[in-house]
């Protein structure tokens, strides 16, 4: 079990390495999926690209914010 967790952590560290970035991007993807899939959000669809870009940028800022507090 410990080994499996260690392997998963190594994989996570290789591809991402930061939970703040991970959850920021995950949330952004969910929001874009909602905008593209839900008819109620069709009006926002032309802005989906901009929202995606802002989501990525904010994920980076959120992650760097921690470095300023150390």
């Amino acid at each position: 079990m410990k080994m499996a967790v260690r392997i998963l952590k190594e994989i996570f560290d290789f591809f991402c390495g930061d939970w703040r970035v991970f959850w920021g991007i995950a949330l952004t993807v969910v929001v874009i999926e909602g905008i593209e899939g839900l008819p109620a959000l069709a009006a926002v669809r032309p802005w989906a690209g901009l929202i995606f870009f802002v989501g990525v940028a904010l994920s980076l800022v959120n992650s760097l914010q921690r470095e300023t507090k150390e």
Binding site: C16, D18, L64
Partner: peptide, 8 residues
């Protein structure tokens, strides 16, 4: 995700 690591 990978690129944000490098950029950060």
């Amino acid at each position: 995700l990978f690129g944000l690591q490098w950029l950060k």
